[in-house]
């Protein structure tokens, strides 16, 4: 791996990837990474509106990992928190920033998630806006964990339709990945 690390880094650069993280993710880490990404984009003279949109996509995707990754370990703390793992990539290609994330999910949720994301993929911006407002209203009054609203927001703000993939891992898990662009 030591020899290959440079090769790996070169491959990331060739794909326009300027940030890549794989491992256990926490809210504190998310805050620090988010700050660093914003500083980096500011340095590249991205507009403040673009910086906010990329940051927003990063936060939604990272918090999805924190809330929903099936790869998690319990922490030895009284509040029963867990540490969730996933992978997050931020890159720049064809004049657009993109955010890519992935995490393990239970095989039993693949069907529902695929259905939900396919629906979002096929909606136009007006339909997405209506659906977002409808879902937000529902969630706000039913105190659901909010699965879905984050995805709708990602779909609304992505300049290309969201792309996603489910890779079977074993009998219990699949690997879910999602790409959005600004």
């Amino acid at each position: 791996m030591l020899d290959n690390l440079y090769q790996f880094k070169k491959e990331l650069n060739q794909r326009g990837i300027f940030f890549c993280f794989s491992g256990p993710l926490s809210q504190d880490l998310l805050v620090e990474i988010g700050d660093t990404l914003r500083n980096k984009m500011k340095q590249e003279e991205a507009s403040s509106s673009t910086i906010l949109k990329v940051f927003s996509m990063f936060v939604e995707q990272a918090q999805n990992i924190i809330h929903y990754s099936a790869e998690k370990i319990p922490l030895d703390r009284p509040d029963k928190t867990t540490l969730s793992s996933g992978i997050i990539v931020v890159g720049y290609e064809g004049q657009h920033y993109y955010v890519l994330c992935g995490n393990a999910i239970d095989n039993e949720v693949v069907g529902t998630l695929r259905e939900q994301l396919t629906k979002l993929q096929q909606m136009n911006k007006d339909e997405l806006k209506r659906y977002y407002k409808e879902q937000r209203k529902k969630d706000a009054h039913e105190s659901s964990k909010g699965a879905g609203l984050g995805f709708i927001e990602l779909a609304r703000h992505s300049i290309t339709p969201i792309e996603f993939n489910f890779q079977p891992v074993d009998n219990d898990f699949s690997f879910f990945s999602l790409k959005t662009a600004i």
Binding site: F55, S56, D139, A140
Partner: peptide
């Protein structure tokens, strides 16, 4: 608010309601 995530957006809707 310069930025808020989707769950904060729900909280704001709840506040305005």
């Amino acid at each position: 608010l310069t930025y808020f995530n989707s769950s904060s957006s729900k909280m704001l809707l709840d506040l305005f309601d």
